[in-house]
């Protein structure tokens, strides 16, 4: 498995080899070996192995002889690996659309076109370098028990009113992303701030209730299920599993719902672009959408639903996403967010 990298290091071709010695922080790592492997596909992803392992195996089933080395990292670590360390990967999958856009904009992505990618709707690809393969809504998850006796909120203003009027019930039982550390949380928060002024009021109310801050959707959903949290705001809706638990409920916001597009791209550092292209095709092919959805539980690209539901707003890929990555803008935003969320 490691032999190609050892060889590469020995010949001095590659100094910043991907592997255990990499400087960026790896969360999970797994090899998907096959007998008589002809090539190894190097994947870096923000997606949990639990979700993506079945997808990788399905890809391997369709492409025999391809071993896969899968690394999970946070979106910021992924950015560091590709942007600063120029680590060698064939595939980068991330939920942080802004960072993926920045990678492509700054020239770290390979252009790839195929008959399959051409079938993607225009909003689901950018520059033929960033390709979306899921559409995942940012939702509020509530515990029905915690809302007992209260009307269920239908939009953000109603949620704000409920939280404001019942501080004793929601004190320290509201959770959301810590946008300082979570790239996805930052993306959701900045998009919220674009959509409506209610975001800042909501942040202030949550700050007053001494909201708990999380790194990941999974933990928030778990805490709602266990009753620690009454509300988790800006959670990836597709992560919510209802296995037998009828207490957890997703608020169908009628004002707007941001849709995050999980994207895949081929880093410029790849040495096997054809193989990487096959993986991109595997993820984006319309005929694979049902299978991918079944295996991973992630909602597939579905233009029809977006047309019917006006409140669903997919975050647009493009240079607009670079704005909130601006150093000065980010500082300003975090300062405002912090002063709202972390109150003395």
């Amino acid at each position: 498995m490691r032999l190609p990298y050892l060889a590469a290091c020995l010949t001095g071709l590659l100094v910043l080899a991907a592997g255990p010695a990499a400087a960026f922080q790896i969360e999970e790592e797994r090899n998907f070996p096959v007998a008589d492997a002809t090539a190894t596909l190097e994947i870096i992803s923000t997606g949990d192995l639990a979700i993506f392992a079945p997808l990788v195996e399905a890809f391997q089933a369709r492409n025999p002889g391809i071993a896969v080395h899968y690394i999970t990292a946070s979106s910021t670590a992924l950015m560091t690996a590709l942007y600063e360390e120029r680590a060698v990967f064939d595939i980068a999958m991330s939920s942080a659309m802004d960072l993926q856009t920045k990678l492509a904009n700054d020239g770290y992505a390979l252009t790839y076109t195929s008959a399959t990618t051409a079938t993607l709707p225009e909003w689901a690809r950018w520059r033929d370098q960033v390709f979306a393969f899921t559409q995942e809504p940012a939702v509020a998850v509530v515990s029905k028990k915690a809302f007992e006796g209260l009307p269920m909120p239908g939009n953000r203003n109603e949620l704000i009113a409920l939280l404001r009027e019942n501080p004793e019930r929601f004190e320290e039982r509201v959770g959301t992303y810590d946008v300082r550390s979570s790239g996805l949380g930052y993306l959701f928060a900045t998009q919220d701030s674009r959509q409506s002024e209610s975001f800042w009021r909501l942040s202030e109310v949550m700050g007053r209730l001494r909201a708990r801050l999380y790194c990941c959707s999974g933990q928030m959903i778990g805490d709602v299920a266990s009753g620690r949290l009454a509300v988790a705001y800006n959670v990836i809706g597709s992560y919510v599993k209802f296995n037998g638990n009828d207490d957890t409920w997703i608020v169908p916001f009628k004002d707007y719902t941001n849709i995050m597009l999980r994207t895949v791209m081929i880093p410029r550092t790849t040495r096997q672009p054809d193989l990487a292209g096959r993986f991109v095709d595997f993820l984006t092919a319309p005929e694979n959408r049902p299978a991918i959805s079944n295996l991973s539980g992630l909602p597939p690209i579905d233009p029809e639903t977006l047309e019917v539901e006006a409140a669903l707003r997919p975050i647009r890929l493009g240079p607009g996403l670079l704005v909130f990555l601006d150093q000065m803008k980010r500082r300003t935003f975090l300062r405002a967010w912090l002063s709202a969320m972390v109150q003395p």
Partner: peptide
């Protein structure tokens, strides 16, 4: 400087 979102999104 607080770059307006539209300043860059208009280019796209």
């Amino acid at each position: 400087l607080d770059i307006p979102y539209s300043a860059l999104s208009m280019l796209g």
